[in-house]
Amino acid sequence: MTLFGLFTRRGSAPVARERLQVLLAHERAALDKIDLVAVLRDEILAVIGRHVSVDPDRVKVKMNRGRAVSTLEVDIEIPTSPRTLARPPGGAAVAT
């Protein structure tokens, strides 16, 4: 550090404050996103599961947050074999 720098040294606290504000803004948004996707996944699964039996591991919910538009991608694999449909034989396989 130069002698001049010694006299003009600025405190480090404002740097700490700014770093924290940026970091926590990101972390709070990220945590919210994780929660939202988990909630959406559970509720979508529950609605679909009322009509068709689905394997919980075959349901993918993805959220992408962009600057202007955010997208929600839901990918559900529904088995085609009649044995795996939720409704018993005789009833409608897929209720409408």
Binding site: G11, A13, A16, R17
Partner: peptide, 16 residues
């Protein structure tokens, strides 16, 4: 130390 800006102040922490 907070007065010398070497430590986060009470207000800084409350704001955050």
């Amino acid at each position: 130390r907070a007065a010398r800006a070497d430590m986060l102040t009470i207000e800084d922490v409350l704001d955050i």
